[in-house]
Amino acid sequence: MINDNANLFLIFGIFTIILGVCGFYCIMVTKNFIRALIGLEILTKAVTLLIIAAGYVSNRIALAQSMVITLIVVEVVVISVAAGIVFGVFKQIGSLNITKMRNLKG
């Protein structure tokens, strides 16, 4: 039983790392604001997966669900505010390209 759970956690851990790499790569390589947010979302998915797997393996699934719900609430707020910021930047510079964001104050 313990060995099964350890192997299951290992598999989830590997897939979490892969998803995390996916999200990081997206954020690093993209030149589009919205795609950077999508990369952030993928990173959050990786964290959600790891929390749920840890809760399942350690027999604390209720606690894990509670933390995932908190994570989802925070994620929605972050994405909504970030979408507002993206729209504000678009109104200022007329483009979603990060490389064109050079003439702001500060």
Binding site: I2, F9, G13, N59
Partner: peptide
């Protein structure tokens, strides 16, 4: 990576 060394499961305080 190798499988982590898990301790024996204890019952959760609240389910």
């Amino acid at each position: 990576l190798t499988a982590p060394d898990l301790k024996p499961l204890t019952p959760a305080i609240e389910n």
